[in-house]
């Protein structure tokens, strides 16, 4: 789709918010739609540039990513033998995270 044809409207903002798992109030939808339109209007300048054949730069890291050995190390131990990372969770069951039904 050609970006110049994008209609930035409230329907688009609502659709994107759904994809992002964000709940917006009506006034947020209206404010964000206007701001999104302005920002997308501004970034339009890059559409004029000739980029045919230019390799996208995803990371500025010049060297190759450094891998470490795949060693199993002890987990951060917390209270009562529970892994410490679980302590930040609101609810845990049997050493796992509790979530609403997914099926």
């Amino acid at each position: 789709m050609s970006p110049s044809k994008i209609a930035v409207d409230e329907a688009l903002t609502r659709k994107v918010a759904t994809l992002a798992r964000l709940e917006l109030s009506d006034s947020e939808v209206s404010t964000f739609t206007a701001q999104l339109e302005k920002i997308l209007g501004y970034v339009e300048s890059i559409q004029e540039l000739e980029v045919q054949g230019v390799e996208p730069l995803l990371s500025p890291l010049a060297a190759k990513t450094a891998f470490r050995e795949d060693e199993i190390l002890p987990a951060l131990a917390g209270r009562e033998g529970q892994p410490k990372v679980l302590e930040a969770a609101g609810e845990i069951i049997d050493g796992g995270y509790k979530v609403p039904p997914v099926l």
Binding site: L36, I46, Q47, V54
Partner: peptide, 30 residues
């Protein structure tokens, strides 16, 4: 934060990722 998540989700969404995210990475190279 919400504004940026929405803009980013849009820039990566199907149909727009090529014109926005990928093109931005190409200009980043330039």
């Amino acid at each position: 934060v919400k504004r940026r998540i929405i803009l980013g989700t849009f820039a990566l969404s199907s149909g727009y990722a090529e014109a926005y995210y990928r093109r931005a990475c190409q200009v980043r190279r330039l």
